[in-house]
C-alpha cells in the first residue's frame, strides 16, 4: 500500500475506534464490495448479504482489537470468511469447485493435436487497461461477464486482482490451496481474455 493510502487508512481506523458514524459510512462504502466477494465464495446471495451486515455490527466491538499488522481489508475479509465457515459448518453445506482443468474448454479447442495453435489470437489488445476501459461498452460487457463467472473464480479474481491481496491471504480467506488458487485465477483470466477478444473482433458482448 502506498504511504498516503496507509495514512488514510490509519485515520479511518481511528475514526472507527472512536465510534464515528461518518467513518463507518466511509468504511462501509469502501469495503463492502470486497466483503461480499468473500461471502459469495461460500454462500448464496441473500445469506452473503446477511453475513456482511452482521459483520459490520461486530466490527464496532472488534475494531479495538485491530492492529495495523494486516491491512483493514484483509482483516475484514477474514472476519467475513470465519463467519461464513461457521455458518457452513452448522448447515453442513460443502463448497464444491472443480480444480481439475486448467484450460477453459473454449480456449483448449483452439489447439491442434500436436499442441500448436489452430486458431491463434488474431488481434493484439491495447497495452494499458486504461485505454481499454475508456470504452464504456467494454466496461459494461466486463461487468456482465464478471457476474457470470462461477463464484469461486470471481471471488479469487476480485481478492487477488482488484484488492491486490497476497496469494497467502487469499488462500487463507477462501480456504483453498495455493495450486487451486492458481487454477481459479487462470480460468477467470481466460474467460476475461475470451470476452475481450470477442468484443474487439465483433464489437459485441
Amino acid at each position: 500500500m502506498a504511504h498516503s493510502a496507509l495514512n488514510e487508512e490509519q485515520a479511518l481506523v481511528e475514526g472507527l475506534k472512536a465510534g464515528d458514524e461518518q467513518s463507518y459510512k466511509e468504511a462501509v462504502r469502501i469495503h463492502t464490495p470486497g466483503m461480499i466477494a468473500v461471502a459469495r465464495f461460500y454462500l448464496d446471495h441473500s445469506s452473503a448479504e446477511e453475513v456482511v451486515q452482521d459483520c459490520w455490527v461486530t466490527v464496532i466491538d472488534a475494531i479495538h482489537k485491530f492492529e495495523a499488522r494486516s491491512g483493514l481489508a484483509t482483516w475484514l475479509h477474514r472476519i467475513v470468511a470465519n463467519r461464513c465457515k461457521n455458518r457452513l459448518r452448522s448447515t453442513k453445506r460443502e463448497v464444491s469447485t472443480d480444480f481439475s482443468e486448467a484450460l477453459e474448454p473454449e480456449l483448449g479447442e483452439r489447439f491442434n493435436a500436436r499442441g500448436r495453435w489452430e486458431l491463434p489470437p488474431k488481434l493484439q489488445f491495447h497495452d494499458a487497461g486504461d485505454t481499454l476501459m475508456e470504452n464504456g461498452a467494454l466496461s459494461g460487457c466486463l461487468d456482465k461477464h464478471l457476474s457470470a463467472l462461477p463464484e469461486a473464480q470471481r471471488s479469487a479474481l476480485m481478492l487477488y486482482e482488484a484488492h491486490q491481496h497476497k496469494s497467502d491471504d487469499v488462500c487463507n480467506i477462501l480456504d483453498v490451496s495455493a495450486s487451486n488458487l492458481r487454477v481459479l485465477l487462470h480460468r477467470a483470466r481466460q474467460k476475461i481474455f475470451l470476452m475481450v477478444e470477442t468484443f474487439q473482433e465483433t464489437g459485441e458482448c
Binding site: P33, D127, D130, I192
Partner: peptide, 13 residues
C-alpha cells in the same frame, strides 16, 4: 492486458 483490465476495473460496485 486482460489481467490489467481487471485491476483497473472497479472492484465491484
Amino acid at each position: 492486458a486482460s489481467t490489467e483490465l481487471m485491476k483497473t476495473h472497479s472492484s465491484g460496485r
